[in-house]
Amino acid sequence: MSPNPRRVDLAFGLLGLCLGLATLFVWIPADIDTGVIDTWRRVTRIGDSMLPAFATIGVLLSCLGITVKALTSRANPTWPPLHGSVLCVVAAILAVSIGLMMVTGPILAWVILGPDHPYRALRDDLPWKYTGFLTGGTFLVVALQALATRRIHWRMIGLAFLSTFVIAMIYGLPFEDLLLPPNGDF
């Protein structure tokens, strides 16, 4: 059973109110040295708290409005599906692909050349410059395509590798000084 959208609106407004109050009375005083108005050596000026304090008051007022509207309005607000589980999978795919971009080059260099060659000296040379990016990029594209279409086949992998290769060439050929992400960037 899906939750009542008005209750979700109410919970959203109340959550915003709680976070806003915590920010206004705890975070801002604890993490900013000067108040909204600051007087130092008889010079009065606007302090660093002004912008975040007014922004937080804006958050509080708008969340109050959302809460009151949820309590009083008869119209049912619309809440689209969150796709929470899909977004968690996407986050995992992104983490794995960035991890692959970072570690593929160093691991391959360690396996092939041995531990005596520091990777920092190699990472701007062929093929090490592209190994991580091609592996991680291909994984990212294939995994997201498979997630969206609920299937996987060889053509997808080929297309993903080709597109990653083209992107690598777009950056790698004209800009020799650029490093592709994030090759051994620990």
Partner: peptide, 19 residues
């Protein structure tokens, strides 16, 4: 869209060089 996402990540990394 996945290709555009990879391109976006690459553009941002290349511009700053920071993970």
């Amino acid at each position: 869209l996945p290709i555009v996402l990879l391109l976006t990540i690459t553009s941002v990394y290349v511009e700053s060089g920071a993970i």
